[in-house]
Design a protein around this nucleic acid. Sequence first.
DNA 1: AGCTCTTCCTGAAAGC
DNA 2: TGCTTTCAGGAAGAGC
Length: 305
Amino acid sequence: MPELPEVETVVRGLRVSLPGRIVGEVRFGKTDFVDNPDEIAEHLPGLRISDVTRRGKFIFIGLESNASGAPDATPPAPTSLGYLIVHLGMTGKLTVIHSADSVSPHTHVFFVLDDGHELRYTDVRRFGRMLFLPESRLAEFTRPLGKEPLEISADEFCQRLGSRRARVKALLLDQKVLGGVGNIYADESLFRARLHPARIAENLTTKQLLALHGAIRRVLEEAIRSRGSSISDYVDSEGKRGNFQLRHRVYQRDGKPCFRCKAIIRRVIVAGRSSHFCPRCQPPPRKPRKLRKNSKPQIHTDKHG
DNA sequence: AGCTCTTCCTGAAAGC
DNA sequence: TGCTTTCAGGAAGAGC
């Protein structure tokens, strides 16, 4: 499943071949995962791809006017007209291949390019999403998105999570809090920070939050260097698999011994997701005492000093 | 505010 | 062998 490192790997690959290309015909198979297929088919042909960027798990393919049409006059500066935005969901793939190459099953969108290639979107389960976003609505689209995990400062990370009463894993998965962390990297980060996924964020010490902030950074950076994790059938824009799955410490290792302490890795459901952890390295939160009618309200000591 | 449940979809794996 | 059932999961929405 593509998370930040996989999406980043795809984006870096697309960045090699897409910028400068002019979009030609757009063809669709199924469109139930596309917000505005008619707009895409109508507006994209003739536009030039300016760049490819990432926000969280979203891929932004920048589109500008093709200013090279007039042979005589000085071409006007290209203006950004908007973005083709793609979320790969669980099984989405974006690949650039020759138009003559065979079409893999479940390929639902074809963007013909001006150099004999096509940008194709393939998605078995169609949990992905695609839309054309005009420049004028960029802010509206990005406003609710969470901070980039590789850019958020330690201070802001501690503030964002430390004030929340939810389980820490639920917050890591919440794309309005952090953009790009999914189930794999949430589990791997929590293991490295030695925090149980069901810990309540508010109850973590500043030291623990800082450890988590650092763990997320290290895990994501290491995974990007490994070109992502290939669980099931993830491949990048050139069809190549990643390698980070070989370095997972807990994800999908339930029943196997912890690399650090040899305890058996366990799997539980937290925040509706399979969560893998070492019961010794990541001790569970203390069972909250059953509240009695006349029990005093619990006072948390201020951990921020 | 935050939890659980449901929905979307398909293929893999388990069950019979 | 072959059919049926179950499960997985990112995100959004409903209901509690």
